[in-house]
């Protein structure tokens, strides 16, 4: 089951580093939003968590994309450290 989100970012078909760049851009417009990233880039499973660590975000949930094509990551602000840049 896919959790609630504010923005849907379908990056399927685009490869490293584009999904992470799109993710970063999504948060520029809406820093507090919860973003559901859909991606089929094999590097995303490593680079999305790494990006979150560098930007004070967390992967709240990950799993298969709702339609079964690729992976999904729900990214939000880290719960307790909104001060982190």
């Amino acid at each position: 089951m896919t959790p609630d989100f504010d923005q849907l970012l379908d990056q399927r078909g685009s490869i490293c580093p584009m999904p992470v760049i799109a993710l970063a851009k999504a948060f520029v417009d809406a820093p507090e939003s919860r973003v559901l990233l859909l991606t089929d880039d094999p590097a995303a499973q490593f680079d999305v968590p790494a990006w979150c660590g560098m930007r004070g975000r967390v992967v709240e949930w990950s799993g298969d994309a709702p339609d079964g094509h690729g992976a999904a990551f729900l990214i939000a602000s880290a719960a307790t450290d909104l001060d982190v840049q």
């Binding site: 490293c16 094999p42 590097a43 680079d47 790494a50 560098m54």
Partner: peptide, 21 residues
């Protein structure tokens, strides 16, 4: 990953949980 033929990043960086891009 984009340097590898397979589009899969280095298994070393992956195992370390490191940024691969």
């Amino acid at each position: 990953s984009c340097v590898a033929d397979s589009l899969v990043p280095s298994h070393v960086l992956a195992a370390m949980g490191a940024l691969t891009e």
